[in-house]
Every structure is written in structure tokens, then in C-alpha cells.
Amino acid sequence: MRIGAALPQFGPLAEPRLIAGFAAEAERMGYDALWTGDRALTPLQPSDIYPGCTPEQPWPVEQARAVDPIVALTAAATATTRVRLGTSTLDAPWHTPLLLGRSLTSLDLLSQGRLDAGLGVGWMRTEYEAMGVPWAQRGARLEEILDVLRAMWTSDPVEHEGTFWRIPPSRMDLRPFQQPGPQILLAGFAAVALDRIARRGDGWLPVTVVGSGPELEFLEGPWQAIKQGAEAAGRDPGVLRRELRVNIVPGLPVEAAVPVLQSARELGYDGAFLDLSYNADSVDHALEIAADILARYHKG
């Protein structure tokens, strides 16, 4: 199982000039992957409350400071040679597929084929309002974005006629390093999201919060639904990936993540990565925690 770490992107860790150094050191330690998330807005009166938060504090305070995920991965790509680079997740419906595809293709080329494109639809309606994107259309937009990305990466000339976007027959000579393109991993727990993963995704991006849940046993039900859906759609469920985000409740001993990583390995996860945004007060501190957890994981 690949062990990864979230790049220093949120809260006190969100210092763009330190991202490259963090990435290089994480790779030197033996980490296999580096990941980013997506947060564009932390409204004072949001439409929705972040899971595990309260009306008094509706989202993690660390998310009020957030580095752009593509910029963070670009910095990491230039400082590393081996680790995979992923998004868990980009809120795809905020983007136009043509520009999103250009960014992902450029990043895959820059990294020499190390990109995993993790996409989702987010959770906060207020962000969609600020983006000028209808919340009710988020699933349909993601479906069409997947159509456009595949066309950009595999068709010549590229052409698309959809509900939300139209691309006239065009030459697009910028093609990804990976063929037929980076793997597209999808997030979500709702039935419609699980169905989309089964039909169209290269894998699933679940999340667990050490000290709060959901526990890994809870994630097995959705995973079985994805595999059954893939088989019903004529796909081989054996090729689908699982890349687990592991958050740790603030104040909990960080070594509590180690048995979760070990359990994920035993359950057959392809990868798991630590997000230390809520546990470290500096980039150096995050590296210390990352080194300690990795050593404990391999020792156990």
C-alpha cells in the first residue's frame, strides 16, 4: 500500500514557498504520494456545516487559509522525481472543463506522468453561489466534465457538444504524459456518486477521521456497492483503486493513525495518505509528525 501525505496547503501550514521543500523531504523519507484538497471560500454564514463541526464554528478554522491545489502540486512536481501527485479532491463543477483539462495535462507532463486526478462535487452550496454555478447541476456538470477530459486526452481532432459546453472541432496538441490520460478518481458517498464511480471512475477517494469516524468497516459497504455497480456496467471491478484520506481529530495523539493505516493495508487499499493540517502548527512540525508516523507504520 502506498503511504502518502497531504501537502502543506491549509491553515498555519499554508506557506507556498515551503511546499517544494516539504515535498522533497517527504519523498526522501519514503512517502509514496503527495495530495492536495480544494477550498475556495469559508463564509461567515455558510449554507452547510462541515462534517463534525458546529453552527458556532461551521468549518475547520484551518480552511480559511488555503493554497491553490494545482499550484501546490506544481511546486511539488518540480521538487520530486518519484512520488505520485494527486488531488483529493478538486471540486470539478467550479471549473470549465477546457481550462481544467489544460491544467491537468500540463501538470501530468511536468511531473512525467505522476498525476492522479481526483474529482468531486464538494459539499457547500455557498461556494457554488460564489462561483456562479448552480448547485443542482453539480452532478450533471461533473459527468460532462468527464466527457470533455476524455475527449481532450484521446480524440483528434477534439470535439464536444453537450448540455453545458460546446467545443468545435479543434486541434489540441498538448497531450498528457500518461496514455490514455491520468487516472480519474472520484469522491462521494451518496448513491448517485457511488454509481458514477462504478460507471466511470478509475477508483474511489474515501475519507476517515481518526477519533471520530467513519471507521474503515463503515467504508466497506459503499466499496462493495461500487464493485457491484462496476460489474453490472460491464467493467472489471478488480482494476478500481481506493485511496484513503486519513484525518486525525485535533488533540488526539497522532500515532493513533498508525493502526488505521495498517487496517487499510489489510483491507486491500491501494493507498492512504495523512492530512496533518489539523495537527501541526508549522511545516517543520508536520514533517516531524510525518517521519514519526511512517517509522511506526513500517515498524508495526
Rank of each mutant, 00 (worst) to 15 (best):
T154Q: 15
T87K: 02
A264F: 01
F10C: 12
E159R: 12
A290F: 00
R84W: 12
A257M: 07
I293A: 08
P250S: 06
H160M: 09
I226A: 13
R114L: 01
G132V: 13
F218Y: 10
R166P: 07
G86S: 10
P250H: 04
L98N: 08
L244S: 08
L185D: 08
G113V: 09
V209Y: 05
G201A: 02
T81K: 09
E127L: 09
P55K: 01
G203R: 02
G11F: 00
P222M: 07
Q179R: 15
P180C: 13
L98Q: 15
A76S: 07
R39T: 14
A117I: 09
V210D: 14
I289M: 10
R200F: 01
P134G: 03
Q262L: 15
G4M: 02
R125V: 14
R138M: 06
V246S: 11
G113S: 03
T36N: 11
A92D: 09
E15S: 11
W165T: 07
L90Q: 12
V254W: 05
W94E: 11
I197N: 04
A72H: 02
A117L: 15
L252V: 09
L185H: 04
A64W: 04
A230S: 12
L274P: 08
G251R: 07
P182T: 03
I167A: 14
A187L: 00
W123H: 11
P93V: 08
L73M: 08
M172H: 12
A193I: 00
R150L: 09
P69L: 14
M1W: 00
D116L: 14
T105E: 14
P182R: 08
P206A: 00
P60M: 03
G213R: 05
T54R: 08
P206R: 03
A233E: 14
A6G: 10
G251F: 02
G139H: 11
L109K: 11
P97Y: 05
S170Y: 01
A286W: 02
E129N: 13
L240E: 12
R150P: 13
P69M: 10
E56H: 02
Y128P: 15
A140Y: 02
P222F: 03
V254C: 06
L216N: 10
P168H: 03
Q63K: 09
L142C: 01
R265K: 10
A64F: 04
F10K: 06
G271Q: 00
T42W: 07
Q9G: 12
G11P: 05
I184F: 07
E143H: 04
N279I: 08
D108L: 12
F177H: 15
A130Q: 12
A14W: 01
M131W: 04
P16D: 09
V192K: 01
D275A: 10
F164W: 08
D38T: 05
H298K: 14
A233R: 03
G113C: 09
E215N: 06
A136N: 10
